[in-house]
């Protein structure tokens, strides 16, 4: 076999590898689930094969317990949700002038994303913009006068995290009315923007590694400036957390 025939091991960039390692180690495992096996609590390992199927990290003996939860491995209603939320609609694109380049700087090289689910919509956030994932808690301090998406303040590690209902942020008004109560939907809070904001979501999935060309980047600012692009292989929307944080801060 010639030297060129050998398959080389593809590694993540140094910075991405270290950040991914640190985030896994520092993931706060829900203390209320002591009886679940480790592989249920475990944060999924980074994978470099973006065509790999989402894995359900549940052993047979606990299968019954998790059947009630949304199945991560099913791309639930992805196709129709892609129409409603995860893609840029033509009219949205044409409402504003096209921008020269909306590709974020973190996507210039290979990057990793954490996938998560919100009312059946598959979303992804870049790991470099992620500050942690914590279990959902009802212990939020409500703040009157804010938008309906604002669930309240959560005290976490000495900081006040503003927790948002991600579904309310991303869905159009008519679909928000059909949402189940918050306490029935939420399982996790994704911390971003240095922990100032928390995105409440149904569940988190695996970490995927992407090349920039695997994302269909937005080419114009539309009604969803927080949408960095879509990942066609995954039927998934990629969030630009920086823009989303700015948008949330602006109310």
């Amino acid at each position: 076999m010639s030297h060129s025939d050998k398959k080389s091991t593809k590694l993540a960039s140094q910075q991405t590898a270290v950040m991914s390692y640190l985030e896994d180690l520092l993931l706060e495992v829900p203390p209320l689930l002591p009886d679940l096996p480790d592989n249920v609590k475990a944060f999924p390992k980074p994978v470099s094969d973006t065509s790999a199927k989402l894995k359900n990290p549940v052993t047979d003996q606990h299968a019954a317990e998790v059947q009630e939860a949304p199945a991560v491995e099913e791309p639930v209603r992805l196709v129709e949700q892609k129409e409603s939320a995860a893609s840029t609609t033509p009219e949205a694109e044409t409402q504003t002038a096209p921008l020269a380049d909306l590709r974020p700087s973190w996507a210039e090289q290979e990057f990793q994303c954490l996938m998560f689910n919100v009312v059946g919509i598959s979303l992804a956030v870049p790991l470099v913009k992620l500050n942690g994932v914590i279990p959902w808690t009802d212990d939020l301090t409500p703040m009157p006068g804010h938008s309906e998406a604002f669930l309240g303040l959560l005290r976490h590690l000495g900081k006040n995290v503003k927790v948002m209902d991600t579904a309310t942020v991303i869905l159009p008004p008519q679909q928000r009315q059909q949402l189940a109560p918050v306490e029935e939907r939420m399982k996790k809070i994704i911390l971003m923007d240095e922990g100032r904001w928390g995105l409440a979501c149904d569940d988190v999935g695996e970490v995927i590694t992407l090349q920039s060309e695997q994302v269909r980047w937005r080419t114009a600012a539309g009604r969803r400036p927080w949408l960095a692009g879509t990942i066609p292989d995954r039927l998934c929307a990629l969030l630009d957390t920086g823009v989303l944080a700015d948008q949330l801060a602006d109310g």
Binding site: S20, Y21, D24, L25, L26, L27, V29, D38, K41, F43
Partner: peptide, 8 residues
């Protein structure tokens, strides 16, 4: 390895 939560 990078087993979740072992950093805590």
């Amino acid at each position: 390895g990078a087993k979740s939560g072992m950093g805590l």
